[in-house]
C-alpha cells in the first residue's frame, strides 16, 4: 500500500538541504585568487546534485546556494552573477547527463562522451559566464575580468569529474537516497 501524495514539504526540504550543501561546500575550502576572492568546491557540489537529482533541482540549488554563499562570506556583490552562472551550470550539466532514476539507483555509468560534453559545457558556462558578466555588470572591464578565467576553468572541469564520482559514492554508501530521486 504505497502512497504517492503531492509532497510539497519533501520537495521544499530537498531543495533547502541541497542548497545548504552547496553553500557549505562553497565556503569550506577557500583558495584566494585576485578576481572572485577565492576558489572553492561549489562546482563539485553542484555537479554532484546534477548527476543525482533533477535539472530543476540542480538549477535552484546551484544558483541559490552560491548566491547565499557569496552573501554570507562577505562578497554579496557577486550574488546575482553567481546565481545566474551556477544555476545555469547545474541545469545544463543535469540535462546532459540525465538518466532515469532506475539507472541512477543501479549505478549505471554515464557514457564517457556525455561526461566530456558536460565538462566542456560546464567550463564554458562558468569561465565564460563570469568573464562576460563580471566585465559588464561588475564594471571590471574585460582585461581585469580575464584574470578569473584560468581558475574557473580548473575548478569547474575538475568539479564535473569529482561530482560524478561523489554521486556514485553517496548512492553506494546510502542507498535510501533513491527514495528522493523523483522529487
Amino acid at each position: 500500500m504505497e502512497k504517492r501524495k503531492s509532497n510539497s514539504a519533501l520537495r521544499t526540504s530537498l531543495i533547502a538541504v541541497l542548497t545548504a550543501v552547496v553553500v557549505v561546500f562553497t565556503i569550506l575550502v577557500k583558495i584566494p585568487t585576485p578576481t572572485k576572492g577565492y576558489l572553492n568546491l561549489c562546482d563539485l557540489a553542484i555537479c554532484f546534485i546534477a548527476f543525482t537529482f533533477s535539472p530543476l533541482t540542480a538549477l535552484i540549488a546551484g544558483g541559490l546556494g552560491t548566491a547565499i554563499a557569496d552573501i554570507i562570506s562577505g562578497y554579496p556583490q557577486w550574488a546575482p552573477i553567481s546565481f545566474v552562472v551556477h544555476g545555469l551550470e547545474g541545469l545544463v550539466v543535469a540535462l546532459i547527463v540525465k538518466r532515469s532514476s532506475q539507472d541512477i539507483s543501479n549505478l549505471v555509468k554515464v557514457s564517457t562522451i556525455k561526461v566530456i560534453l558536460a565538462m566542456v559545457a560546464c567550463v564554458i558556462i562558468v569561465a565564460g559566464g563570469y568573464f562576460v558578466l563580471s566585465a559588464i555588470f561588475m564594471s571590471l572591464g574585460f582585461a581585469a575580468a580575464a584574470a578569473g578565467i584560468p581558475g574557473n576553468i580548473g575548478q569547474s572541469g575538475i568539479g564535473v569529474i569529482a561530482g560524478y564520482a561523489l554521486s556514485r559514492a553517496v548512492i553506494k554508501a546510502y542507498p535510501p537516497v533513491q527514495g528522493l530521486l523523483n522529487y
Binding site: M1, E2, N7, A9, L10, P176, G179
Partner: peptide
C-alpha cells in the same frame, strides 16, 4: 512516516 519514507504498511 509513510508520506516521506517509502515503506509497506498494513
Amino acid at each position: 512516516l509513510t508520506k516521506f519514507i517509502p515503506s509497506e504498511i498494513e
